[in-house]
Computed example of a mutant assay.
Amino acid sequence: GEPIYHALRQVYVALQARLESDLTVRERADLQRVARRELESLIERSVPDGPVATLLGKIEGGLDHWLTFVGEPAVSPTNNAAENALREPVVLRKIIGTLRNDRGMFVHETVLSLLATWRQQGRNPYEELRRV
């Protein structure tokens, strides 16, 4: 597993360094193809069943998605924003007992989704809630 980790890290660091420059659409597409070939070479490694084989299966299963950030500048290479967005709702769900039933969860998820969407759109969530 360690060699695979190091190879993945090397690919990621190289991509990040290359993406710091202002690349054309064509250069990004070429870079994405090269990185995909590197991931494919990792997947082709022969490993016995176990956690490493599972990891390689996950890499293979997401091959069409892992490198989206290379071709699309607006896409983040990590899911940190999504993780941070989920942190508050998860804590609230654990604290507030009424969210343990399906109806409470549905209402909670819907309201939080609306609030987050309005914030991302630069709209005032309080005013939008009043309007709705």
Rank of each mutant, 00 (worst) to 15 (best):
E127C: 02
R119S: 07
T98N: 09
H65T: 08
P48K: 15
S21W: 14
P51W: 12
E109R: 08
R28K: 13
R100I: 04
A29W: 15
V25K: 13
Q120Y: 09
K94G: 09
A53H: 12
Y12D: 11
V13W: 06
S21Q: 15
N101I: 04
I96P: 01
P48W: 14
V70Y: 02
R45V: 15
A81S: 06
G1F: 15
P51I: 12
V132K: 02
R18E: 13
T110G: 02
A53G: 12
Q120D: 13
F106Q: 13
S113Q: 09
V52W: 03
N84S: 06
A14Y: 06
W66R: 04
D102W: 12
H65G: 07
Q121P: 00
D30Y: 13
G50L: 08
R103Q: 09
R36L: 08
E128G: 02
R103A: 11
H108K: 00
R130A: 00
N101M: 05
E44C: 11
F106S: 10
R123F: 02
Q16T: 08
L67W: 02
E72V: 01
E72D: 03
L31T: 08
V13Q: 10
A116T: 10
A29K: 15
E40N: 13
Q121G: 00
P3L: 04
T78D: 10
T78F: 06
G50N: 06
A85L: 05
A17V: 10
L114H: 00
E38A: 14
P125E: 01
G50T: 08
I59L: 08
K58I: 12
S21K: 15
W66S: 09
V111N: 00
P73C: 01
T98R: 10
G1E: 12
S76T: 07
G71W: 04
P89T: 11
S76P: 03
A29I: 06
V70N: 01
